[in-house]
């Protein structure tokens, strides 16, 4: 009769690169927390190495990368390949921020599973994670 509690998904939200504008990232953190995720936020100016180390220690299901500076084509794929190197290839990587539409196919090609641009409803991100992570489990 007791509902067995489902283990919450763990998500790392990180801001690689040099821009310090993390309001967007914080809004995502808050939305995911309120949707029942356990969210680890590591703050601004993270190197791919820092992000992957945190993902490894926290055993996260997904990593959300937020970036506004334009360095996404370098930094996002670096995170993905470092994850693979560390045996964490099954961690879902998604991105957001100011990412031009024409860059999205190339990012997906390099292993970034989804990209959410400005104006994406928060519920779309929540639904996406629930669906994708739910299938993997």
């Amino acid at each position: 009769m007791v509902a067995t509690q489902k283990k919450p998904f763990r998500i790392l939200i990180a801001k690689p690169g040099l821009d310090g504008h993390d309001r967007g990232a914080k809004v995502i953190v808050r939305a995911l927390r309120d949707a029942g995720f356990e969210v680890i936020y590591t703050g601004i100016r993270q190197t791919p190495e820092m992000i992957v180390q945190a993902a490894l220690q926290e055993d996260v299901d997904a990593i959300g990368l937020s970036l506004l500076s334009g360095a996404h084509m370098t930094l996002f794929p670096q995170v993905v390949s470092l994850l693979k190197e560390k045996g964490l290839g099954d961690v879902l990587v998604f991105g957001g921020g100011i990412i031009p539409d024409e860059d999205v196919p190339a990012l997906k090609e390099k292993g970034v599973r989804e990209v959410f641009g400005p104006g994406t409803p928060l519920s779309a991100i929540v639904d996406y994670l629930n669906k994708s992570l739910g299938q993997e489990r």
Partner: peptide, 28 residues
């Protein structure tokens, strides 16, 4: 959160200087 069951785990943010030190293992 007693309401959503979710959590914001922010302690790591303050322990950044050890972020790539393999002799330090931090778990939230």
């Amino acid at each position: 959160s007693p309401i959503s069951g979710g959590a914001f785990l922010g302690d790591r943010l303050r322990i950044q200087e050890h972020a790539t030190d393999s002799g330090v293992f931090i778990r939230s």
